[in-house]
Structures are given as structure tokens and as C-alpha cells.
């Protein structure tokens, strides 16, 4: 009888563990974003047709020209994508080479979106079946990837680009160029 007394404390100990777990979770809630597991890995092979009339489409080989790129996953129907347009333009003015991947979009909608919000892209591929999006582990719009000159994904930014993200992304681009 004596030696099993300690087992009576086991339930309380288990509850204590539960408490620590959920309390720590309540204090710093987990991020709800799903990060890509493709950082440090090469882009998958793809060749997308142009998403608008005045820019060429996008293929993996375009990203392997020795120059780092920003790959912006966007869509005309996505509200935060419109919100980040000024920041993208700022990045472009600062010398970033930005390519776009338009998710599930009609060419006329993309054209209207670019006419309204400006066009910072050097190339825009139309990803009608989200194939490239899935291929690079992106789970929403907008997302922005830093890709180095060999076509290796170096960094992922989830959500719209805010003002304070602009210098950070430029820094990441510079690192990718090394």
C-alpha cells in the first residue's frame, strides 16, 4: 500500500504539464502562417505563359540568369496585394528585379489591376492551377520569395509587404547576390 502512494500525485503532475503547455501557448500564440519548406532548395521546373499582354511569361530558366530576383505571388482579386503595390514599386525603384506569379487570374483582370496599381514586374507568369505556388510551398497570396541567381529559394515573406519590410527585403536580395 505504501509504495503506490506516489501514483496518486501522477494525475496532478499530468495536469500541471497540461497547464504549462496551454498557458505558454496562450501567452505567445503560434503563428497561423504556414512556412515553405523549400528555403535553400532550387525552384521546381516550370514555364508559365504570360499573365498580361505587355510582359513575358515566367520560366525557371529566367530565374537562373545569375541575378537575384524577388518572386511575388499575387492576384488581382486579392485585397492585400493591392495594399503592397506601393512597396513593390519602391523595391523596383531601389533596383530589385521583381517577377510576378499571378494566381488563378484572367489576363484582363491582371491588366486592370496593373493599370490601377502600377506594374513593378519584369515578367509575370499565369499560374492558373496554382502549380508553381504549390511547387514553391506558398500557401496564400501575397507572398514574396527571394531567389538567388542560381534559382535557389533563399527567403520567404508571408503576407503583404509593409514599409519596414522594404529595406529588409533589399538586404536579403543583397545577401542572395553574394
Amino acid at each position: 500500500m505504501k509504495q503506490i502512494r506516489w501514483t496518486l500525485w501522477v494525475p496532478l503532475a499530468l495536469f500541471g504539464a497540461f497547464f504549462v503547455l496551454v498557458a505558454s501557448q496562450l501567452m505567445n500564440p503560434a503563428s497561423t502562417t504556414v512556412e515553405s519548406a523549400m528555403i535553400g532548395k532550387p525552384l521546381p521546373d516550370f514555364a508559365l505563359k504570360p499573365a498580361s499582354a505587355d510582359r513575358p511569361g515566367l520560366a525557371t530558366s529566367d530565374m537562373q540568369d545569375g541575378q537575384p530576383h524577388l518572386l511575388n505571388v499575387f492576384a488581382s482579386w486579392c485585397v492585400p496585394c493591392a495594399a503592397e503595390a506601393p512597396q513593390l514599386s519602391a523595391l523596383e525603384r531601389a533596383g530589385a528585379n521583381i517577377v510576378g506569379v499571378a494566381i488563378r487570374d484572367r489576363p484582363e483582370d491582371v491588366a486592370a489591376f496593373l493599370a490601377q496599381h502600377g506594374n513593378p514586374y519584369s515578367r509575370i507568369g499565369a499560374d492558373d492551377l496554382s502549380e508553381v505556388q504549390v511547387g514553391i510551398g506558398s500557401s496564400g497570396v501575397p507572398e514574396t520569395f527571394v531567389v538567388d541567381g542560381k534559382g535557389i529559394i533563399r527567403y520567404q515573406h508571408i503576407g503583404d509587404i509593409r514599409d519596414q519590410d522594404v529595406p529588409m527585403l533589399l538586404e536579403k536580395l543583397k545577401e542572395a547576390a553574394l
Binding site: 488581382s76 482579386w77 494566381i103 488563378r104 487570374d105 484572367r106 492558373d128 492551377l129
Partner: peptide, 9 residues
């Protein structure tokens, strides 16, 4: 439904 403008895959 203007989530996106394309028909489903």
C-alpha cells in the same frame, strides 16, 4: 465568390 475569377481546376 470573387475569391478568384477563374473556373475551378
Amino acid at each position: 465568390s470573387a475569391q478568384d475569377s477563374l473556373p475551378p481546376a
